[in-house]
Design a protein around this nucleic acid. Structure first.
Lengths: 151, 151
DNA sequence: GGATATGTAGATGCAAATATCCTTTTAAGG
DNA sequence: CCTTAAAAGGATATTTGCATCTACATATCC
């Protein structure tokens, strides 16, 4: 319901790239940092490349980088790449009787989708980057374990 | 993405029941009116019964009716029965470092989910019933074919 | 140019959501 | 009772999203 796993993965990865602008990140690096299965992540990154959100470089020193700055890149861009948001334009019941007008049900559902869409347009990837810690994960500071958190 | 097929089916059916309050509707009737595969609909209706949103009567003259009036029943009630909305409460990455605080990514995603949840609480099933036509479908007037739309 | 490190592509496996079918239970009406 | 109409339950497809594995292409470094 609501957001697919793949959307999660794609967003985590893009946020990670945003916080490492300029430095190509390999699938392995991204996978470890974002805790996404690396084999699957490879597919996801490839999708992002095909739609032009990221660039790839092969070979030693290669990896992925964003093609835009993180404040020119919205959550919607990422979401629409891997699992596009589809507005309800026609009645799923295929009734001709109300032409372009949706019935109340689908009108309300579409409005809900629209809200999400708007929120995702407004939110830039830059807004999602954690700044309060040096080289941390996308989501705190996993990479720099705190004192007293031995495992 | 966003809404599952089952949610669609459940909502259509409940809206149909709402517009036939008092008259038990059989799975067959609901299925035809809402264009949902009847065998699958049977499962969905059963779920709605288990969570108490509808009552069933077996045997001749049986069918399903709502247990509440349509303005006491929200879209969220229905959605949560068949495909519950889950807020993001803990960081999916399982990082302890930020305790109860979500990272910006998951904070934003959760807010989006929260918006949907609110919208679905506010929307009553009564708001979704088409009133402008007598015995029509949930979504216009499919049941009363217009003149000149022979088939 | 050989060794190594990367992304790219395709085949396949697996599990969950969706859909179908068949049997059993329960109720109503004669 | 018996017949019929309905829901309830269970077994089984089908489809799709998620994930894994392997082979291949391309770049860097020595």
């Amino acid at each position: 319901m609501i957001f697919s796993q793949t959307v999660e993965y794609a967003l985590r990865s893009v946020v990670w790239l945003a916080s490492h602008a300029g430095n190509p990140q390999t699938v392995q690096q991204i996978a470890e940092a974002t805790q996404v299965p690396s084999n699957y992540l490879a597919k996801v990154m490839n999708s992002l490349r095909r739609t032009g959100l990221v660039e790839s470089r092969r070979g030693l020193g290669g990896g992925y980088i964003l093609t835009r700055t993180s404040d020119e890149l919205t959550v919607l861009d990422v979401v629409n790449t891997v699992d596009p948001i589809e507005r309800i334009e026609r009645c799923p019941l295929g009734l001709k009787s109300h032409g372009l007008n949706l019935c109340p049900l689908h009108k309300h559902l579409d409005e809900a989708i629209g809200m999400i869409e708007q929120a995702f347009i407004k939110t830039k990837i830059a807004d999602l980057v954690v700044k309060t810690c040096e080289s941390g994960s996308i989501c705190g500071k996993a990479a720099t374990p705190e004192p007293g958190e031995g495992s």
